[in-house]
């Protein structure tokens, strides 16, 4: 099973040179730590910053400079600042190439639920609905099963939907899976030491297994 950092590390391998990328809160934020230095990418923060730099040192902290998770950040070289309407204009306009976000559930046709548990928790959707409705390339980072052991990869989402038919790829603690355009989770890679049978048992939605499934490789 992968740690959260390993999930982030595996997702970082999907990043391509020249991309503008929006990273969600949680595991997606960790992806920034694993993007190879030779790649030139720009991280977008939907509260109005293109070019998120590393977290500040104590004496660099600026309360007027935070990311969408409200964490203090710095600005990378060549960054720019803008208002919230402009920020979502660039998101809806398709200018952000890759969106990485967390999820509570993903369905086999690529629907995602990640904003609300009815009657329990009220947080709001933030920018997630805009991001998933607009991005061409969405990767979900999440645990394969909930804390109570229920599969989070389902035939249909049971929680309120954030967006429909939008997720392209999922990286969990057990596997890398693509969403088939015809519906279904295509198993692409296994976490080291995790068997296809275990992934099968923990995937409630339709799992498509074609040929030998390789283990993930971590350099």
């Amino acid at each position: 099973m992968l740690t959260k950092d390993q999930i982030a590390q595996r997702i970082a391998k999907e990043v391509k040179n020249g991309q503008y990328i929006n990273l969600g809160i949680g595991i997606p934020t960790l992806v920034a730590n694993y993007i190879p230095e030779k790649l030139e990418v720009v991280l977008q923060s939907e509260n109005g910053l293109l070019g998120i730099g590393p977290f500040p040192t104590e004496d660099q902290i600026d309360p007027d400079l935070i990311n969408a998770g409200k964490q203090t950040v710095t600005m990378a070289k060549g960054s720019s600042l803008f208002n919230s309407a402009e920020s979502f204009g660039m998101i809806r306009g398709g200018h952000v190439h890759l969106t990485i976000l967390g999820a509570m559930e993903v369905s086999e046709n690529g629907d995602i639920s990640n904003w609300k548990i009815p009657g329990k928790m009220v947080k709001g959707m933030g920018g997630a609905m805009d991001l998933v409705a607009s991005a061409d390339n969405i990767i979900v980072a999440m645990q394969h099963c909930s804390r109570s052991g229920e599969s989070k990869l389902l035939p249909e989402c049971s929680l309120p939907i954030t967006g429909i038919r939008c997720v392209k790829k999922i990286v969990t603690d057990l596997a890398v899976l693509d969403i088939s355009p015809e519906g279904g989770f295509i198993l692409k890679e296994r976490a080291p030491g995790v068997s296809v049978e275990e992934i099968k048992a923990k995937t409630a939605g339709k799992l498509i297994i074609e040929g030998e499934i390789p283990e993930m490789i971590f350099e």
Binding site: E46, N83, S84, A85, S87, F88, G89, I91, R92, V122, G124, M125, G126, G127, A128, M129, D130
Partner: peptide
């Protein structure tokens, strides 16, 4: 009472 609105929609409605 609360209206929860997607952030980009909120921003664009204000704009």
């Amino acid at each position: 009472e609360v209206d929860l609105i997607p952030q980009g929609t909120l921003a664009e409605r204000v704009r």
